[in-house]
Design a protein around this nucleic acid. Sequence first.
DNA 1: CCCCGAATGTTAGTGACTAACATTCTGGCA
DNA 2: TGCCAGAATGTTAGTCACTAACATTCGGGG
Lengths: 203, 203
Amino acid sequence: MATDAPTKRERTLARLIETGLELFERQGYDETTVAQIARTAGVTEMTFFRHFPSKESLLLDDPYDPLLVAAIGRQPIDLPPFLRAVRGIREAWRAVPDPDQPMIRRRVRIAATTPSLRGATWRSTGNTEHAIVGRLVADGASDHDARIAASAVLAALVAGLFAWAEDETAGLATSIERALDVVDVECVVHEADAAEPAEARDA
Amino acid sequence: MATDAPTKRERTLARLIETGLELFERQGYDETTVAQIARTAGVTEMTFFRHFPSKESLLLDDPYDPLLVAAIGRQPIDLPPFLRAVRGIREAWRAVPDPDQPMIRRRVRIAATTPSLRGATWRSTGNTEHAIVGRLVADGASDHDARIAASAVLAALVAGLFAWAEDETAGLATSIERALDVVDVECVVHEADAAEPAEARDA
DNA sequence: CCCCGAATGTTAGTGACTAACATTCTGGCA
DNA sequence: TGCCAGAATGTTAGTCACTAACATTCGGGG
């Protein structure tokens, strides 16, 4: 894999990420300069941009796309695209390995508490969105519907991640699931008027 | 109102908007410099920033929030928050005045075709999102649910606007409605059987 | 007509990011 | 082991969005 003998590039990159996160946490994202991160990590500003295309990208490089897409593909094909996406994401995030969670939390928390990063977070979902659209279309959805479904689901997911990051006591899987419930309305409402629609909410 | 005797500030602002849009359309957003817009409009770069807080904001200042919020408030209170938001927005956009549409289209089209603006577009919905959350919470939804519902709806709306901007033949209200149908899954799935909900798909 | 404040201009600076070119360092191969 | 190609880094100089502080002009109401 990559666990033996980290090459020089990898070591510099790890150092940049670590110092970057630390500085962001200590003094805020906007108040932290790329030059400062670089200097603290013992390199040049130029070197920073050789490892990351932008300041933002230090925070939000996520490699989970393939799992999402696969899980969506596994949902019943006769479901509306939006619900397939919702449930696929639900299933995929259930499987996120525990050890990754602290690091994810650090990153998400910074993004969630930095207004100027809200937009960036959204843009960074571009790749994921594209992947989801591809899957949905391949399974028969129209391009139009797929794009809207993907956007909406990812928005719910991101909002759920933000909520999770702010709540120390919450587990990742549970938080995501609660978020997707808000949007996965079908069964709640009509699968019989039995059982009051949206009760038993939080405090 | 404001239709009589446009003050100097208003005239400069109108000139900046017009030249800005023109330049964006002719040579692209990223290729257009704030200095160039200002110069073409006969003012200084500094003056530009006295009228807009950022380059982006020339494109995406929209004043429709209050109508949205009001329409959402009008939805049945026993509906899940997400569906209230979806249907409120549907209702509100039905009422957008025709004369505004060409200008909206110009703006949305530029945003839709400029990758670097995707994030900005999303961030610009921040105010709207906040307003929607406020309405939903005031009507009894939890903060958590309201935030997720608002994010998801707005994502669907923006995706719908993008689709509309790219399709010359589509009407605004219809496009929005088709977009919200993707996400307003309840009736499609269960209310079904009665009157096909979202027919007349694209080519 | 004059004057106060709004609108604009000027200058100077910061920070993210890029391009072109020079230097050092590393890892694999002879 | 020693050497060398190429990777990794440094240097310099520049562009563009955006801000701050201060000077100037212009417009409309008294």
